[in-house]
Simulated scan of single mutants.
Amino acid sequence: MARLIEKTPCEALLPVTCGALTLRELVGDRVTSVAPLRGQKTKLAAALKKLGLAWPEPNRVIAKDRASITWTGRDQAFLIGADPDTLAGLAALTDQTDGWARIRLEGPGAADVLARLVPLDLRAFAPGQAARSQLGHMMMILISPAPGIFDIMVFRSMAATAVHELHHAMKALAARAAV
């Protein structure tokens, strides 16, 4: 019988550094899709409050300690780094942990790197914001947890492509700065 070897989505691809910019993988946090069941939004809000969170408005993320909840679409959010068991019966819960690659781009010029690949005005993208958009030709979820830091989520199957595109943009920006 074949023995499977557990690997992260960006295994052997990250971290990479170009100048003061770093691209690294975020691993270890549970990711759960949360979709409120009909008539349960008030009870779901109370359960999230016990976690120190609330249901996020569109294009927002709410974080408390190592847990966060990120808007990902109409009546859908991703709960990251928290146990979703207290939400059972209040929302449709789907474990997404192994389906996504989570990558962090940080350092001065991080927004300039993403500006080469993302069709958003990143100068106006403040901490606490989230967006479902494109990274090149890939769908992604972009989160700004702090100034100069961007968390990028892409489908696991697109991890190598995302790393390649981001690293290429990092190198291009570093080369331009060296001129």
Rank of each mutant, 00 (worst) to 15 (best):
T8L: 06
E11K: 08
E11Q: 13
L13D: 09
C18G: 14
A20K: 09
T22N: 08
T22W: 04
L23D: 03
L26T: 10
V27H: 13
G28D: 04
R30H: 06
T32W: 00
A35D: 00
R38M: 06
Q40K: 05
K43L: 12
K43Q: 14
L44D: 01
L44S: 03
A45M: 08
A47Q: 03
L48R: 01
K50H: 12
G52P: 02
L53Y: 02
L53R: 02
A54H: 08
A54E: 09
W55Q: 02
N59V: 07
K64V: 11
A67Q: 11
S68A: 14
I69T: 05
W71S: 05
G73R: 00
D75K: 02
D75W: 05
D75Y: 00
D75E: 14
Q76P: 10
D85I: 05
L87W: 00
L87V: 01
L87H: 01
G89P: 06
A91I: 00
D95L: 02
Q96W: 06
T97W: 03
G99D: 08
W100V: 08
A101D: 01
R102K: 01
R102T: 02
R102H: 03
I103F: 07
I103H: 07
R104Y: 11
R104M: 13
L105M: 12
A110F: 07
D112F: 10
R116S: 14
L117V: 07
P119Y: 07
P119S: 10
P119I: 04
L120E: 14
L122H: 08
L122A: 09
R123K: 14
A124Y: 07
A124W: 11
F125V: 05
A126H: 12
P127V: 03
G128M: 02
R132S: 07
Q134Y: 13
Q134E: 13
Q134M: 14
L135V: 00
L135E: 01
G136Q: 06
M140E: 07
I141S: 10
P145A: 01
A146W: 10
G148F: 07
I152Y: 14
F155L: 10
R156H: 13
R156P: 13
S157Q: 09
S157V: 06
M158P: 08
A160P: 02
A169Q: 01
A169I: 01
M170Q: 07
M170C: 06
M170N: 06
K171W: 14
A172M: 12
R176D: 15
R176N: 15
